[in-house]
């Protein structure tokens, strides 16, 4: 496998990143970088690390010269997962207020510790902390519960002061969304599986409305909706499919409208991406655009209810006319 870390690693260019992946030869992982400048989204990093864990440290290396900006990879902890030694020698900056280095979470207890510990690192206000905790809480739990990934969830986050934005990446090398939904929903393609997973009320554990005692099929829909309302990107890559919610046009005033059907959201999708055994979720949250969390939840809840009502109506018996 070969992964190139470019100088354009943000979610706007997530599709290009996915399409550039060479996931052949699953026993070896080579990482190359742009020769002058590296810009990586946490999503790019967690994918690299998830695959590095899968192939093993001794089979993972960074090829070629790494530019000075590559020290960011060091700070985020990438060199802990590759056999290549870090070429950077410096006083490590205080982590507070900047980023959450790559972390592996395998249990619910580790998740709880992570959620408690991360907020001081990001230096967020209580209002913003709630949103970020919520997103990590839902997405990491999804991995622990549904992915069957032996190596757990690989997570990382970065706070960008200039744009007052938090970027998050969460990745696993588990069974992927398509397989997770096979028992009850039988999606034909990987992109269909991703869209089902984004639809409110659809969970891989049942077809029953309202879900099971433990699953309602709301987590991904809530997180995607938070990204949409805060006018930012949200992306999922699983199997051979990639779905990216586009940033809501800032010139359109008012709160962005939410849809139960992810096909109605402004988005890009492909179903012929390099086949990735696992799931990668990436999200950006603009803290300037974040309304009060309960207002945000109210809007999401209304769409959620409507989706269930409409699905319920589809099951109603219809009169027979002749």
């Amino acid at each position: 496998m070969r992964i190139f870390l470019s100088n354009q690693g943000n979610l706007r260019n997530f599709r290009q990143f996915v399409e550039s992946l060479d996931l052949s030869n699953p026993r070896k992982l080579e990482i190359t970088t742009h020769n002058k400048w590296i810009t990586v989204h946490p999503a790019n990093l967690v994918l690299v690390v998830a695959l590095a864990i899968k192939v093993g440290m001794k089979n993972t290396e960074i090829i070629g010269d790494i530019p000075d900006t590559g020290r960011y990879l060091d700070r985020m902890g990438l060199f802990n997962f590759v056999k290549t030694s870090s070429p950077f020698h410096y006083h490590k900056k205080e982590e507070s207020g900047r980023f959450l280095p790559i972390k592996i979470i395998k249990t619910a207890e580790e998740q709880s510790h992570f959620i408690t510990d991360m907020i001081p690192l990001l230096h967020l206000s209580e209002k913003n902390a709630t949103v970020i905790k919520y997103i990590f809480g839902e997405l990491v739990r999804n991995v622990l519960e549904h992915s069957f990934a032996k190596s757990g969830a690989v997570v990382a986050a970065q706070y960008y002061k200039k744009t007052n934005r938090v970027s998050i990446g969460i990745c696993d090398t588990g069974i992927g969304i398509w397989k997770s939904l096979q028992t009850h929903w039988h999606p034909k393609t990987h992109i269909e599986a991703i869209k089902l997973a984004l639809t409110p009320g659809i969970t891989g554990t049942t077809r029953r409305e309202g879900g099971t005692a433990e699953n309602a099929g709301a987590g991904l829909f809530f997180v995607k909706s938070i990204a949409k309302i805060t006018r930012n990107y949200f992306a999922i890559y699983s199997g051979s499919a990639e779905y990216t919610l586009h940033k809501h046009n800032k010139r359109i005033k008012g709160v962005p409208r939410l849809y139960a059907d992810p096909s109605r959201d402004p988005h890009g999708e492909i179903n012929n991406a390099p086949s990735f055994q696992g799931t990668l979720v990436a999200v950006d949250i603009s803290l300037d655009e974040t309304p009060e969390f309960n207002e945000l939840l109210t809007g999401i809840g209304v769409v959620y209810d409507k989706a269930i009502r409409e699905r319920k109506r589809e099951k109603y018996r219809r009169p027979r006319f002749i």
């Binding site: 209810d305 269930i308 009502r309």
Partner: peptide
């Protein structure tokens, strides 16, 4: 809300 919606649909 959604649980009450779903109870009927069972």
């Amino acid at each position: 809300r959604y649980m009450q919606e779903s109870i009927d649909s069972d």
